[in-house]
Design a protein around this nucleic acid. Structure first.
Lengths: 202, 202
DNA sequence: GTCTATAAGGTGATAGAC
DNA sequence: GTCTATCACCTTATAGAC
């Protein structure tokens, strides 16, 4: 730990991140954030003025965290076939560690107007090497003709959804927690196989 | 309209269904439900006692609605290869009509203890003809060896997730609403092809 | 059954002492 | 910068007239 001492502002922000991601904007309480930060409630207003402003900062940070985490993998200097398993593993492990993050981002995004994220800047996935590799393969006939974005959406859907819907799936299937890990491990192999097979054999 | 006159209780319940699905438990307001029902707020307590009890009924109804809607398709007397496109189309169209429903169910399920749904009774998917057909195919070697539940989860993931994550995907891809329909139409063809190819060719 | 009025407690936000 | 005390408002819930 090089930088042991966190500023009060950082302590509050991390507590807010945790509470907002778990409870959402409507469900979160300023008092709960203060308690989790081990600090007086007035400090929240001193540093962030209002609940809404604190939430905005937390949301933007969460959105960047979720959407930017895969960019390094997408830009690796390896083939697209090697990239898909890496992306699948990344999402499965990252989302299992923090299942509240994707849920929070997706959920709160329904209420926030588009210009809310104007300064965040999306469209980064289209600028990755992974996207360029898919485009090239499609153009030279080695990959099935389709929109590359469909592949990205499938990877995210197949990995993120089962994790956020875990309680529902467990209820549907009566799967115990001990078997859940095996279930996810199976998916980790299955999804890349299925996607690559579909893209290459046509 | 055979039964034009709805009871006050039904009017309230439908308004509650709408508001809770849009705003969630924490975000919903009893006053808003009363307004949407065009009725006095006291009536909500007269018929349902408390917000929590009203929510419970709404949640159970929503859960049944979401999870039971595919059972008729799964039990059709057709082959499993014919069933997959039907299931995909069903989820895509049903979820696009009511994107709040799956989001609501998945989201609120994180907070409700398992016994909350004990009387609803899950495990129904395992009792469908679709599930039996998959098991049979796996056992006689015509379908790739795997847990049948993985197939069901993939179908739901690939269809439900893009719809609930629509704002995020649109932000990521700068996809306009007019192109969204084409995006979904492509998926409707792509997903069954991918799944069936993976299951049969191994 | 339906309404008005109001209680009772929670919640975001601020003033002011230190 | 940090705390206590407090305001002003909102929200669920109930009492009681009709």
């Amino acid at each position: 730990m090089v930088d042991e001492q966190k500023t009060t502002e950082e302590i509050i922000f991390e507590a807010a991140l945790s509470v907002f991601q778990r409870k959402g904007l409507a469900g979160a309480r300023m008092q709960e954030i203060a308690d989790e930060a081990g600090i007086n409630k007035s400090m929240l207003h001193y540093y962030f003025r209002s609940k809404e402003l604190l939430f905005k900062q937390v949301f933007i940070k969460s959105f960047k965290n979720f959407s930017a985490s895969t960019l390094p993998i997408m830009n690796l200097e390896i083939s697209w076939e090697e990239k898909i398993p890496l992306l699948v593993t990344h999402y499965l492990t990252a989302m299992q560690k923090r299942p509240d993050l994707p849920m929070f981002v997706i959920n709160e995004m329904r209420y926030n107007p588009e210009d809310f994220l104007s300064n965040v800047g999306g469209n980064k996935i289209k600028d990755t090497l992974f996207f360029a590799q898919l485009m090239e393969g499609i153009n030279n006939g080695t990959i099935r003709p389709m929109r590359p974005i469909q592949i990205v959406v499938s990877i995210i859907s197949e990995t993120v959804f089962p994790v956020i819907a875990k309680p529902m799936i467990q209820h549907m299937t009566k799967l115990q927690d001990t078997n859940w890990e095996a279930f996810i491990a199976d998916r980790e192999k299955m999804i890349p196989q299925m996607l690559i097979k579909y893209l290459k054999e046509f």
